[in-house]
Computed example of a mutant assay.
Amino acid sequence: MIVRIMGEGQVRLAESHLADLNKLDDELLAEMEKGDGPGFRRTLQALLTRVRELGTPLPDDSLEPSELILPSSDATLEEVRDLLSDDGLIPG
């Protein structure tokens, strides 16, 4: 699957990693619901770091359709709320 991190580019990520990423996504959602700004920031960074570690970056000139779009590392709580679906940022 192709994942876009806003402001950074795209990575190819095996769908087998989604369960691992969903744990961080669930944690992020809970922190957002509590309004835990520091926890939100910490977990968002952990989620993006994990995607970068597990994924393979696509060339900058590659423009493949993204199946998943994640916020940038400096996104605010409000910006991330706008990206959320019922499942959080990561489906499943």
Score class of each variant (00 low, 15 high):
residue 49 T to V: 04
residue 67 E to D: 15
residue 28 L to M: 14
residue 70 L to R: 08
residue 46 A to Y: 03
residue 29 L to H: 13
residue 31 E to D: 11
residue 35 G to V: 04
residue 7 G to T: 11
residue 33 E to A: 06
residue 63 L to Q: 14
residue 46 A to K: 03
residue 54 L to E: 13
residue 24 L to R: 05
residue 17 H to M: 01
residue 64 E to H: 06
residue 28 L to V: 09
residue 4 R to A: 15
residue 7 G to Y: 10
residue 61 D to G: 04
residue 62 S to R: 05
residue 8 E to G: 00
residue 10 Q to V: 03
residue 20 D to E: 13
residue 10 Q to K: 10
residue 32 M to K: 06
residue 46 A to H: 10
residue 51 V to T: 13
residue 27 E to D: 12
residue 34 K to P: 00
residue 28 L to E: 06
residue 29 L to F: 14
residue 2 I to R: 13
residue 20 D to F: 04
residue 20 D to M: 07
residue 5 I to L: 14
residue 47 L to N: 01
residue 14 A to G: 14
residue 56 T to L: 13
residue 3 V to P: 06
residue 67 E to W: 04
residue 58 L to Y: 05
residue 21 L to T: 06
residue 10 Q to R: 12
residue 4 R to L: 12
residue 31 E to Q: 08
residue 59 P to I: 08
residue 65 P to A: 08
residue 21 L to R: 04
residue 7 G to L: 06
residue 56 T to G: 07
residue 13 L to H: 11
residue 51 V to P: 05
residue 61 D to M: 07
residue 72 S to R: 13
residue 4 R to D: 14
residue 11 V to T: 06
residue 40 F to I: 03
residue 44 L to M: 03
residue 15 E to D: 15
residue 33 E to Y: 05
residue 47 L to Y: 01
residue 35 G to Y: 11
residue 9 G to P: 15
residue 44 L to D: 01
residue 16 S to W: 02
residue 26 D to V: 08
residue 27 E to Q: 13
residue 16 S to Q: 02
residue 6 M to G: 00
residue 22 N to E: 10
residue 67 E to K: 07
residue 27 E to Y: 04
residue 31 E to H: 13
residue 49 T to Q: 07
residue 8 E to K: 10
residue 5 I to C: 08
residue 10 Q to G: 09
residue 13 L to K: 14
residue 53 E to R: 12
residue 55 G to T: 15
residue 18 L to N: 00
residue 19 A to S: 02
residue 64 E to A: 14
residue 4 R to N: 10
residue 14 A to C: 12
residue 30 A to D: 15
residue 42 R to V: 01
residue 70 L to A: 11
residue 60 D to A: 15
residue 55 G to F: 15
residue 59 P to W: 04
residue 54 L to R: 14
residue 57 P to K: 11
residue 40 F to A: 03
residue 71 P to W: 14
residue 41 R to S: 05
residue 39 G to Q: 01
residue 61 D to V: 09
residue 7 G to N: 07
residue 57 P to R: 06
residue 65 P to Q: 09
residue 14 A to Q: 14
residue 19 A to W: 00
residue 34 K to T: 05
residue 64 E to V: 09
residue 26 D to Y: 10
residue 61 D to S: 08
residue 10 Q to Y: 06
residue 49 T to I: 04
residue 8 E to A: 12
residue 30 A to M: 09
residue 8 E to T: 09
residue 38 P to S: 00
residue 34 K to H: 05
residue 67 E to T: 07
residue 11 V to A: 10
residue 58 L to C: 10
residue 2 I to Q: 11
residue 11 V to S: 08
residue 45 Q to I: 02
residue 59 P to C: 09
